[in-house]
Design a protein around this nucleic acid. Sequence first.
DNA 1: ACGAAATGATTGAAACGTCAACCAGTTAGG
DNA 2: CCTAACTGGTTGACGTTTCAATCATTTCGT
Lengths: 158, 158
Amino acid sequence: MTAPRWLDETQQQAWQGLLVILLRVFPEVERTFKANDLLSVQYGILVALADAPDHTLRLTELADSANTSQSRLTHRLRNLVSRGDIKLTEDPQDGRAKNATITAAGKRRLDRIAPIHAENVQRLIFDHLDTEQTAALADALSAVAVKACDHELFKHST
Amino acid sequence: MTAPRWLDETQQQAWQGLLVILLRVFPEVERTFKANDLLSVQYGILVALADAPDHTLRLTELADSANTSQSRLTHRLRNLVSRGDIKLTEDPQDGRAKNATITAAGKRRLDRIAPIHAENVQRLIFDHLDTEQTAALADALSAVAVKACDHELFKHST
DNA sequence: ACGAAATGATTGAAACGTCAACCAGTTAGG
DNA sequence: CCTAACTGGTTGACGTTTCAATCATTTCGT
């Protein structure tokens, strides 16, 4: 085994910032969603479908778009389907697969909540950053995000 | 009501990055903690105590240091105490309050896991950023974090 | 074509987080 | 003093997340 790669001071500051956002900011965002009978994950699901061609996505693709596990998707889909925000249809090509489609009602709910959510994010995050900081943040975070979506990364390295 | 403050393209990119980190990277970090009989929240608790003068903190301060609610702290403290990583003592000054102290065993567990965690964070986050990006990230995130810890922010504005 | 492996999706149990209600001890007002 | 309001902390119930096990369907190897 080699020497531990400790975080330097700057890295610690960045990591601590992420922790604060995870543990303080996101829960606040979640509370707003809950006040509108939604979870942030469900919001992500609705957004992914609204942006998809034909308002439809195979469940596996949907899970990937919404950054969730399949099982979490199944669980969260339950209420959305029973409530009529999303419709499920079996894929004619592949007997295992299902397609999810956002309904008009689902689209309406999304449109109602989206501006509230946007305001929330502005208030909690971007109101405290100038243009340069925001650009730098987008640059750094998307670099990390791109790699995180390369699933290779998660097959523990040697 | 006024016009919605939609996120511009850069802001969306930044926000999407945060979501990927929340929904993909943090769970991966959490799995590593779990493999060592710990939750990330508990790790935060142990770190806060290890860094505190006398290895001791009042529970309210501990909750704040670890970015958790009091009730979550209580719940997560249970195992840590019963397992001997932390000791609770009643405050002599204030009959309501309690102090938490990290024990030698707790410190040992922390020291065992810290390097694994550091390696994980490097691999998942900082290995994909150069020095400038890391500095910019630290700058922006800590600006957001500082504000998030001003609790005023969370008393929904008018 | 036939069985084995892989894929798409669901299930259920156990652990976790949240929230509101609560208890106990302390502070402050009259 | 005595009670009301407040603070520190705990509890329990409910909904969510995770994880491993499962089922059905499709693909692959030979």
